[in-house]
């Protein structure tokens, strides 16, 4: 019955485990990610935050011997279903990485390339401009479109990566510590940008910076290694960011967000 309902969530995971060989890096995750909100995944280093995030666009497929059990549902379809094309999944779930990784091409081509391989047939100049405007970068680069992307500053490169992601019009944008390699001013610009982007996109961000999670997110998932000593990470608490930071249910969450741990 549940599967036939109109899905209210951007992503829903059911009993999700991510394995590397026989090792469960992430276990038993049940999340319901709200549409057009920012959801933060926080937790100490090595608890599987990035692994979980990468499970949402099947990036772990490139790690040999990794596999997934359970379900990740997007609009009612399990993205790990047997008839699912991971390339199509990634076309609908974009990703921004920890270290800015523009392609070694021109600024223009960085955006046009993704659109082109995804079959975009419209006015490319317009798409490039709109994507750059959407990533709050247009004014800075409009006269440099032919320049190599690596001539931009780190913060500009990261916004270019966001621009190329929105150019392919995904439903969801995953961000893996997108500001951890940036200076405070660039970080602020990315955070402001996220507030703009959530009007049109669902955003899931991994961050090790709790202040950032508190500032930008509507919901927060707190991850922690399992108590049984298996080195396997899981979500121990998931609710509105306000609640996580002011009134957490789990003692471990409270210790973490108040800085007594981690």
């Amino acid at each position: 019955m549940q599967n036939t309902q109109i899905p209210e969530y951007a992503i829903e995971t059911k009993n999700l485990f991510v394995f590397y060989g026989s090792f469960a890096a992430v276990s038993e995750v049940n999340l319901k990610i709200e549409k057009q909100k920012v959801t933060a995944i926080i937790g100490p280093s090595g608890c599987g935050k990035s692994t979980l995030l990468r499970a949402f666009n099947r990036m772990n497929d490139f790690v040999p011997s990794s596999y997934v059990t359970g379900e990740v549902l997007m609009r009612g379809q399990n993205i790990y279903g047997s008839n699912i094309d991971p390339v199509e999944v990634r076309r609908n779930i974009g990703m921004v990485f920890q270290k800015p990784n523009p392609f070694p091409k021109s600024i223009y081509e960085n955006i046009a390339w993704g659109a082109r391989i995804n079959g975009f047939k419209g006015n490319m100049d317009e798409l490039v401009e709109q994507s750059l405007r959407g990533a709050a970068l247009w004014e800075e680069v409009k006269d440099l479109l032919k320049k190599n992307a690596y001539e931009l500053s780190g913060g500009q490169q990261q916004r270019l990566c966001i621009a190329r992601t929105i150019a392919i019009q995904p439903d969801i944008i995953l961000m893996d510590e997108p500001a951890s390699a940036l200076d405070p001013i660039s970080t602020l610009r990315i955070e402001e940008l996220m507030q703009e982007l959530k009007k049109n996109y669902t955003i899931i961000i991994v961050t090790h910076n709790m202040q950032q999670a508190a500032r930008v997110s509507d919901y927060t998932a707190m991850m922690m290694l399992e108590k049984d000593g298996s080195r396997s990470g899981t979500v121990i608490e998931f609710s509105e960011t306000k609640k996580i930071f002011t009134n957490p249910k789990d003692k471990r969450t409270e210790d973490y967000v108040t800085g007594r741990f981690g």
Partner: peptide, 23 residues
């Protein structure tokens, strides 16, 4: 990270190899 960037854009393996990695 360049390959991952391409894959995350919905590029196939061939598109990634030929249009991102090779250049």
């Amino acid at each position: 990270v360049l390959r991952e960037g391409a894959y995350a854009m919905g590029a196939t393996k061939f598109e990634t190899s030929l249009q991102v990695v090779l250049p």
